[in-house]
Design a protein around this nucleic acid. Structure first.
Length: 274
DNA sequence: AAAAGATGGTGAC
DNA sequence: TCACCCTCTTTTG
């Protein structure tokens, strides 16, 4: 679940549930208890997402920006789920609740109280986010241009580009027909423009549906007479976790390889651009 | 029943 | 490059 689209979706959900409310903040598991007590009963301020980082703000008269923030990073296995108010089940690091709804945070990589200045410092280290309408793709392009790392590695580097994870990486490179091993410094400007524009188009759909669908109409299960994808690792995709199966476009076998400790999926025949 | 693996990232070598 | 974090699902025995 947790690529950038999911965090932006959670920010929207938090704002929908908590705006105009005071929030009961607690840490049933105990590891965030001290900070939770500090925030408990405060007025909700605002949630914001930048890439895979989620910030939940609570009103604070003393803070420069009028708020104190919880920085949340789900990591690989964390989750934030909304349920009708009921006793917490399992290990809940953070609970934010109204009288009707509870948002429970489990297994996060990061859950800490930060000031507005600390939040800004975290955000300064992140590259542009395709889900931010004000983001500047040239900032990422300058980093890519002077790197000898493969474009597939650069897309996963959150200081280059914020929000893209393993699924969007594999899928946008396939859709743009780009060789994942192409060095950043050798990538054509038009290829980068294609990647960025495609992410700007794709990721809002991911926010709306809370899943990653990247397959064009002509390659959908209905259009091709194939069974729909049934697992819950994203939606309909071209290459992600489709290794040893046939490419939906050319029929050749989809490859899988380890790149910097993460699984990379691609079609060697379709993806030859640089 | 146990192990492996996952949409992520850090810190120690 | 690897162990580790910590949760849940899927695969293996």
């Amino acid at each position: 679940m947790p690529e950038g689209h999911h965090l932006h979706r959670l920010a929207l959900d938090c704002n929908r549930v908590f705006t105009g409310h005071t929030v009961a903040v607690s840490s049933p598991q105990g590891r965030f208890a001290e900070s939770a007590a500090l925030l408990d009963g405060r007025e909700w301020f605002e949630a914001r997402a930048h890439g895979k980082q989620l910030f939940c703000g609570f009103a604070d008269d003393v803070a420069d920006d009028g708020a104190l923030w919880i920085q949340i990073h789900l990591g690989l296995i964390g989750g934030l789920s909304f349920t009708p108010l009921a006793p917490p089940v399992g290990q809940v690091r953070l609970r934010m609740a109204t009288e009707e709804v509870a948002a429970d945070l489990r297994g996060p990589q990061v859950c800490r109280l930060v000031t507005g200045a600390e939040m800004a410092a975290v955000r300064e280290k992140l590259g542009p986010d395709p889900l931010d309408p004000l983001a500047d793709p040239d900032i990422a392009w300058r980093r890519i241009q002077r790197s000898s790392k493969p474009i597939a590695a650069l897309l996963m580097d959150q200081s280059v580009l914020a929000g893209v994870g393993n699924v969007y990486r594999a899928e946008v490179l396939f859709r743009q027909r780009i060789n994942p091993q192409r060095e950043g410094r050798l990538l054509k400007k038009s290829s980068w423009a294609g990647i960025w524009d495609d992410l700007v188009a794709l990721m809002p759909l991911g926010v709306a549906d809370d899943r990653i669908d990247t397959v064009r109409p002509e390659h959908t299960p209905e259009a091709m007479g194939r069974p729909p994808r049934v697992d819950d690792h994203g939606g309909e995709v071209y290459v992600y976790r489709r290794h040893d199966q046939s490419c939906l476009v050319c029929g050749s076998t989809v490859h899988k390889a380890d790149l910097a400790g993460r699984n990379l999926y691609w079609c060697g025949k379709c993806q030859r651009r640089g």
